[in-house]
Amino acid sequence: MLAEFLQYLFTGITIGATYALIALGFTLIYNASHVINFAQGEFLMIGGMATVSLTAMGVPMVFAVVLAIILAGVLGIALQRLAIAPAKQADVVTLIIITIGASIFIRGIAQVVWGKEYHVMQNFSTDQPIQVFGAVLNSQSLWVLGIGAVMVVALVLFFTKTLIGKAILATSMNKEAARLVGIRTQMVLMLAFMVSALLGSVAGIVVAPITFTSYDIGIILGLKGFVAAAIGGLGSGVGAVVGGLALGIVEAMAAGYISSDYKDAVAFSMILLVLFFMPRGLFGAKVVERV
């Protein structure tokens, strides 16, 4: 019984940690610009695919990872500079559609360049699963959790201790006021996209040994990340992590105890329930509408 429950819990945590990492990327861009970046999943894909293809070309793993992250960062900047910045007076919905267009575009390029096959990435450490009270845990899950934790801490420090982080927060709270105190808001937005892309690509690289990677992996993982961010409360880093883990655990428990056919439906019902009682997610900030 316990072993069974633990197994579902571990599975849920593994899946959930993946969602949490992706949700963090959404949070960052949302904080800076109130845009839901539907291309977030593509950063994830870029991270995984670039690493795999570079290692296949003989580049050592560490360099491949660094190059892949840099590539994603450049892409994040490009996305903000070339697609988001020029659409100045656009509605938030219009911006969302732009990010959808961007994600289709990036995916299309990836498909042409890298092909359509799925690829394997080796576990960072051992392939041997870890046994705990009769349940098993993939060693890579610990990597996902660990790196997730590191990234959350780094983000918190970034926003509270660094000038750039504070500038991003200030911009998110009030763009005009931020500009008045001398913050270059466009620059800040660009940084937010870049950091978010970096986060996304790191997520893509750590989860690749569990999920495999391919040109279209970003669609569904990106979506689940958005869902996780919304449950947690858009804009909240803690919320993203809790939301991701909650979503993963609910999915795994539902698959184990209720019905594997309806596990996703159970997860989506949970979202409706959460939003019903907490219209701004678990940790969302209360915002007073300006009239």
Partner: peptide, 20 residues
């Protein structure tokens, strides 16, 4: 063919950027 998705994404993006 191969470039169909790329073109679609590009058209969608450009239209929305220049005709928000």
């Amino acid at each position: 063919q191969e470039l169909e998705t790329v073109m679609f994404g590009l058209i969608l993006m450009l239209t929305m950027i220049f005709m928000p």
